[in-house]
Computed example of a mutant assay.
Amino acid sequence: MTDTLATLERTDGGGLIRFERTFPNAIDDVWSALTDPDRLADWWPPFATNVHVDLREGGTMSFDWPDGPQLEFRFLRISPPALLEHTHTSAGSWMRYELDATDGGTRLRATYFVPEPDSSIERGDVVGGHYGFDRLEAALAGHPVPFDLDVFTALQARYADHGLAASVE
């Protein structure tokens, strides 16, 4: 799990939340973890859900929670295995994953555009993104981990110290 925190760049239209990770895995393996429904289920959603992926521009990725709402994102740009971009939960938001092969594996740069940065901070988007990428790292290592509220809360406290999360009460 990384100690590097996400950054937030405020823009005229909202904000760009950026994450960067380096994995020892080949780029095709990381791409698969970002696009294969079975592998997405290992790290993306915080709770058990069914994941569906129609991997084409205009296609969708959806998460069906047994006791909750369906989340659906539309793919905006796809260029395997280097670029994946889709809409996100808030109206006007999007997520972009950029992958680069390195000598030791793959560098992932993820950018999450949000129209209202303060609402995203309050909602926990920054912490959720970071924790999701921690879980992706574990899944890529062959050891997926379930959502752990204690770990999430500790991470939330670290981000709150930097003004990128609501304070932990």
Rank of each mutant, 00 (worst) to 15 (best):
P146I: 12
E116F: 12
V30W: 01
V53T: 12
R109V: 15
T35K: 13
D54R: 04
H52A: 15
N25M: 01
H88Y: 15
M95L: 15
N50K: 15
F63A: 10
P46M: 11
R74P: 03
E20D: 09
G92K: 11
D134E: 11
Q70I: 14
L8C: 07
W65G: 14
H162S: 08
G15K: 08
G104C: 04
D118Y: 08
D12I: 08
L84G: 03
D67G: 13
T2H: 11
A41K: 10
A139W: 03
T22A: 07
T7R: 00
L16N: 10
A165M: 07
A138K: 02
L34R: 08
S62P: 11
R96Y: 06
F19L: 09
N50Q: 15
G104N: 12
G129P: 13
R18W: 05
I121Q: 05
A110R: 02
T89N: 12
G13H: 12
Y97A: 11
M1S: 01
F19R: 00
A48M: 07
T102C: 09
G132M: 13
F63Q: 10
L149G: 13
L140E: 02
V151C: 07
A101R: 07
D3V: 00
I27S: 00
Y131C: 10
F75P: 07
S167F: 03
Y131A: 13
T11V: 14
D38P: 08
H130K: 09
G124Y: 09
T22D: 05
M95A: 14
L5I: 02
E137H: 14
P146Y: 05
F113C: 05
D3P: 00
S32C: 08
D161W: 01
L140M: 05
L108S: 02
R123F: 14
S90T: 11
D150Q: 12
E85N: 07
F75C: 10
L34T: 06
D118A: 11
A82G: 11
L71Q: 12
G14H: 08
D64K: 14
G129I: 12
P69V: 07
L76V: 09
R21W: 02
H162P: 00
L108I: 03
G142F: 00
M95Y: 04
P24R: 02
V145A: 03
N25K: 05
T7C: 01
L16V: 15
G128C: 15
F113M: 08
E98I: 11
G124C: 11
P81F: 05
P66M: 07
R109E: 15
P144L: 05
L149I: 15
V145C: 01
D148R: 04
T102K: 09
A41V: 14
A82L: 08
Q70G: 06
P37V: 13
V114D: 02
S32P: 04
V126F: 01
E72Q: 15
T11M: 05
A138Q: 07
L16M: 13
P146W: 08
T11I: 12
A166E: 13
T111V: 15
M61S: 14
A82Q: 14
T35H: 09
V168Q: 00
T106G: 00
V51E: 05
P81C: 04
A33Y: 08
D12Q: 09
R39K: 14
V126Q: 03
V30T: 06
D100C: 11
E137K: 02
D36T: 13
V30A: 00
G142N: 02
